[in-house]
C-alpha cells in the first residue's frame, strides 16, 4: 500500500481527536500527535484502535509504544500489513 494512502488514512482517523484543523491539514511524516495535533494522550489509544479496525491489523503493545508521530505509525502499519 502506498505511503500517501496510509497517511491520508491516519489523517482521517486522527481528525475527530484534534481541535487543530490547520495542523491536521498540514499533516506529514514528521507530525507528532501530541505536540503538533494537540491530541490528548488518552485518545492515542482510540487512534490505535481505529487504525486496527481500518487496516484489519493487530497492534501489539511494543508497536503502540512507538506510535507518537505519523512516521512511526506508518512504519508500524506497513510492518503489520506485511505480516498478514
Amino acid at each position: 500500500m502506498d505511503r500517501e494512502v496510509i497517511i491520508s488514512a491516519i489523517k482521517e482517523v486522527a481528525a475527530p481527536y484534534t481541535q487543530d484543523k490547520q495542523a491536521l491539514d498540514e499533516i506529514s511524516e514528521t507530525t507528532s500527535f501530541i505536540t503538533d495535533l494537540k491530541i490528548n494522550s488518552a485518545n492515542l489509544v482510540d487512534i490505535v484502535l481505529d487504525l486496527e479496525e481500518k487496516f484489519g491489523i493487530e497492534i501489539d503493545n511494543d508497536s503502540m509504544a512507538k506510535m507518537l508521530d505519523v512516521k512511526s505509525t506508518l512504519d508500524v502499519i506497513e510492518a503489520k500489513l506485511a505480516e498478514k
Partner: peptide
C-alpha cells in the same frame, strides 16, 4: 491531571479493546 467532565466528553474507555491496551 484529568478534568472528569472533559474526559467524559473526549474518551469512551468502555469501547472494545480500550481497557486492555491501557490497564
Amino acid at each position: 491531571l484529568v478534568d472528569l467532565r472533559q474526559a467524559a466528553i473526549e474518551s469512551n474507555w468502555r469501547r472494545k479493546g480500550y481497557l486492555v491496551k491501557v490497564c
